[in-house]
C-alpha cells in the first residue's frame, strides 16, 4: 500500500515535470521562430551593395589607368 502510494506520487511528479518541460521547450521553439521571421531580407540587400561598390571601384580605377596612359612619360 505504501509502495503503491509512492509509485503514484512518482508518476505524478513525472507528469508535472513532463508538462513543465513541454512548456519550456515549446516556448523555446516559439522564441526561435520569432527570431527567424525577421532575418531573410537582410542578406540580399548586403549583396547588392557589394556588387554596386565593386562596379564603382572598377570604374574609378579605370579612370586612373587612362590618365596614366595619357601621361605615360612620367609613369
Amino acid at each position: 500500500m505504501t509502495y503503491m502510494k509512492t509509485e503514484k506520487n512518482n508518476v505524478m511528479v513525472i507528469r508535472i515535470l513532463g508538462v513543465k518541460w513541454t512548456f519550456i521547450s515549446l516556448s523555446i521553439i516559439f522564441l526561435n521562430s520569432c527570431i527567424n521571421v525577421a532575418s531573410p531580407e537582410a542578406p540580399i540587400v548586403i549583396n547588392l551593395n557589394i556588387k554596386v561598390q565593386q562596379e564603382i571601384l572598377i570604374k574609378q580605377a579605370k579612370a586612373v589607368e587612362e590618365a596614366i596612359e595619357e601621361n605615360a612619360g612620367i609613369f
Binding site: K59, Q60, A61, A63, V64, E65, I68, F75
Partner: peptide, 18 residues
C-alpha cells in the same frame, strides 16, 4: 576630382597599375 574621390585613393589605384 573628376571621379569624386580623394587624391590618395586615386594615387593608390595608380600604384596598383604602375
Amino acid at each position: 576630382q573628376a571621379q569624386g574621390i580623394s587624391v590618395e585613393r586615386a594615387a593608390f589605384f595608380g600604384g596598383c597599375k604602375n
